[in-house]
Amino acid sequence: MNRGVQIHRVSRVEACCRPKDWTWPRQNRAFIEENWARRTAGKPQMFNGRVLLLQDVTFGEDICRNTYFEVDYADFVAWIDKGYPDPDIANGFAMGALRGSDGAYICGVMGAGTTNAGRIYFPAGTPDLSDLRPDGTVDLATSLTRELAEETGLSEDDYRVDDEWIIVQRWPTIALLRTVTLPVTAEEGAAQIRANIAAQEEPELQDVRIIRGAQDIDQATMPLFLQSFFGWAFDQR
């Protein structure tokens, strides 16, 4: 698998879920349990549900195809914290590249009670069983809008979602982005989101950040795939 950064633009994403015998969790059960205890200390909202990890991603003519499998969230977190020891597995998730009508982007700052406290990126989440359809397909488009609603309080009436997908592949991270544009400026959108966060009982975000150009890329708090996306996006202007 190519470990460099690759960015693809496609009009279609197809995703499915297939069984996989992932041996790494069975071989590292003690570490997983200890890691989960450490991770959840003082964070009662974290729970060990089932999520979907990527076992394969391929590209065809104007299409990206993803194959997922089910794992425990604790296994997934331990795999990350251990440094991604299984190179054949990836974290593939849908993400809304939220921006204002002025073209400036809006990222969230993850709250203290979350797994990635203090990290800055667009609203997103690892796909879970709620994204899995009876025919075995994974609905990434709905995953994107759901995460936007949960983290920012924005509904689908508040923005426009582009049809095109931008796939940022920085293995073992595969971010499947769609541009999400508000009818108001980034400043106005940020103010609306802050008001929504303030009204939530257990907000996932503690704040938002506006990204207008390369000077706003925070290398300390933004994941590498997002830094790559912003570098690419600002080069397109």
Rank of each mutant, 00 (worst) to 15 (best):
residue 71 V to D: 07
residue 52 L to I: 03
residue 96 G to S: 13
residue 68 Y to F: 12
residue 92 G to L: 00
residue 68 Y to V: 10
residue 95 M to T: 10
residue 53 L to C: 06
residue 85 P to W: 03
residue 53 L to R: 03
residue 97 A to F: 02
residue 70 E to W: 04
residue 59 F to D: 13
residue 52 L to P: 04
residue 77 V to E: 09
residue 59 F to P: 13
residue 81 D to I: 05
residue 82 K to A: 15
residue 67 T to I: 14
residue 92 G to Y: 00
residue 52 L to G: 01
residue 94 A to T: 03
residue 81 D to E: 11
residue 94 A to W: 01
residue 62 D to L: 10
residue 57 V to D: 04
residue 74 A to Y: 08
residue 69 F to R: 06
residue 58 T to S: 13
residue 79 W to N: 09
residue 72 D to G: 15
residue 82 K to Q: 15
residue 57 V to Y: 07
residue 62 D to I: 06
residue 84 Y to R: 09
residue 73 Y to E: 12
residue 91 N to I: 03
residue 95 M to Q: 04
residue 62 D to A: 12
residue 50 R to I: 12
residue 64 C to N: 09
residue 82 K to N: 13
residue 73 Y to Q: 12
residue 76 F to G: 08
residue 85 P to H: 04
residue 73 Y to M: 13
residue 83 G to H: 13
residue 56 D to S: 13
residue 61 E to C: 11
residue 80 I to E: 15
residue 56 D to A: 12
residue 68 Y to W: 07
residue 79 W to I: 07
residue 84 Y to V: 07
residue 54 L to C: 11
residue 85 P to I: 07
residue 50 R to L: 12
residue 55 Q to E: 08
residue 63 I to T: 15
residue 78 A to N: 14
residue 51 V to A: 00
residue 97 A to S: 08
residue 90 A to C: 10
residue 76 F to K: 12
residue 63 I to A: 11
residue 74 A to K: 15
residue 94 A to Y: 02
residue 93 F to P: 02
residue 56 D to Q: 13
residue 69 F to Y: 04
residue 78 A to M: 09
residue 89 I to W: 01
residue 54 L to W: 00
residue 69 F to D: 08
residue 75 D to M: 10
residue 98 L to Q: 03
residue 97 A to T: 02
residue 57 V to P: 03
residue 51 V to E: 01
residue 70 E to F: 04
residue 89 I to F: 01
residue 54 L to M: 02
residue 82 K to Y: 11
residue 86 D to S: 10
residue 54 L to I: 03
residue 81 D to N: 14
residue 59 F to V: 12
residue 74 A to Q: 14
residue 69 F to K: 05
residue 53 L to K: 05
residue 98 L to A: 03
residue 80 I to Q: 14
residue 93 F to C: 04
residue 71 V to W: 05
residue 68 Y to S: 08
residue 62 D to P: 09
residue 65 R to G: 08
residue 67 T to L: 09
residue 91 N to V: 01
residue 52 L to D: 00
residue 89 I to A: 02
residue 87 P to S: 08
residue 83 G to Y: 03
residue 75 D to E: 13
residue 57 V to A: 15
residue 75 D to T: 04
residue 64 C to Y: 02
residue 89 I to P: 01
residue 64 C to M: 13
residue 61 E to W: 08
residue 96 G to F: 00
residue 50 R to D: 08
residue 98 L to E: 04
